[in-house]
Each structure stands twice: as structure tokens, then as C-alpha cells.
Amino acid sequence: MFKDEPIIETIDLSHRYNTHNALDNLNLTIYSGEIFGFLGHNGAGKTTTVNILTTLLKQTSGTAKIAGLDTVKESIEVRRHIGYLPENVTFYNNLTAFENLAYFAKLSGVKNVEAKVIEVLTYLNFSEVKDKKLGGFSKGMRQRIGIAQAIIHEPEILFLDEPTSGLDPLGIKNLREIIIRLNHEKQITIFMNTHLLSEVAKTCTTIGVLNHGRLIYKDSLKNTLKRFPTEVSLEEIYVQMETNGNN
């Protein structure tokens, strides 16, 4: 179903904020069709990585490629291949869901905007909010509109930064289902920063662990669980990796 080719690639990717080394020679390859869970403690460099991959931030050194395109030299072209849902997604509160989505669709170069917005909202089972202003939306509803704006131009890769943050259990379950559907039905590669190990276990096909800007582990979820047979949960595996990484 998916091509076995790297769709995200970083080579010696580093980034510094003044004196702080946020990313330290990150070498990461993600293949088309994966659901990649990017784990790490607060300040490990996960959001910095996503910011660089989504072209919002220029790295200090190294290279990042999306679908073979350089994120710095070909940033506009890269953005045609990606969708992005930031941690705290916000919109124009005095515009309706339709108006917000139409705006982002036009910016993404979507042709038949009206039909596309309706199609995406229907796909996400959310068409009833089309004419409602976003000002009164809950976090979960905003998150779903956030997904809609991220996939409206049919990207190949979807970046999600802590997508379950602030959601109630039902919201988390709904979001998980959406992510899996997008991956299975629309063949979108998912790159997900998260803290929730339970979500990684239920959603991701591959995991990577970042520790103080360094990638200390990357493998498929299947292999990971095989490799650590004595640990009862993914949480224990993660704690062991973090401990080893710090040592």
C-alpha cells in the first residue's frame, strides 16, 4: 500500500537558542505510511524539530528534507506536502468554521474551495458546525477543525504537536480514530509529538525518543515491545530509555 521510501529525513540537524542546544545532530528517517510517535521529556527538542520540519524555523546547522525537498531552500514547496496542527490551535473566532477553513484552503491553493470544505467536514463527521463561529468552540471541536485545515489540501504528511493535550478521554478517543483513519484511508504519513505513551501504544507504528536534543531510540512499536520483554508497559520501556539516555 505505501511506498517504502523516506518521506522525512534529517541529517545532523542542530538548533541552538542562544546558549541552549535544543537539537544536537538529529539523524532521523521516517518512511511513507508510518505513524511516527516522537517521545521525549519537556524541553527535549520535539517542538523545535516539528517547527523546523514545518519550515516555521530555520535550523542552526544540518539538513531537513520533506519528500526530498529541502525545508530551507524549498520551503514553499515543502508546505504543499505537509499539514500542521500546533499544540494550541487557534483560529479567527469571529469567523465561521466554513470561513476559517475556506481561508486556509485558498492559502493552500485548493481549487474548488466550497466543495472541499464540505467534503473535509463530512469526512470528519463535523458538517453540522459549518456555519457556527469558532469563538464558542471547545478544545476538542477546535482540534477537529484544526485537523480539517491541516488535511484540506490533501497533504502527504501530517504533523501533530501534542494533539491530545487538553482533551477529555472521549476527545482523545475520537482524535485517535481520526489519525488512524487518515493514515489508512488517505495514506497520510503521521508525525506526532506526544507525552501520552498509552496513545503511542494504540496509534503509532514507529517510535522515536528524544533526550536533550539527541535521538536515543528509534524502532517500530512491534520491535520495541519485543526488545523489552520484561517491561510490563511502554511507560516502563520509556523510563528505561530515558534513564539510559541520561547516563
Binding site: L56, I76, R79, T90
Partner: peptide
């Protein structure tokens, strides 16, 4: 309004 709400992040993830 874009800066305050953080919509700039969405805008500049688009091919604009």
C-alpha cells in the same frame, strides 16, 4: 490578532 491567537503558525505552514 494573528500574533495574539497564534494563527500565524497555521498561516506560515501553508504555501504562502
Amino acid at each position: 490578532r494573528e500574533r495574539k491567537s497564534g494563527v500565524t503558525q497555521l498561516i506560515f505552514s501553508k504555501p504562502l
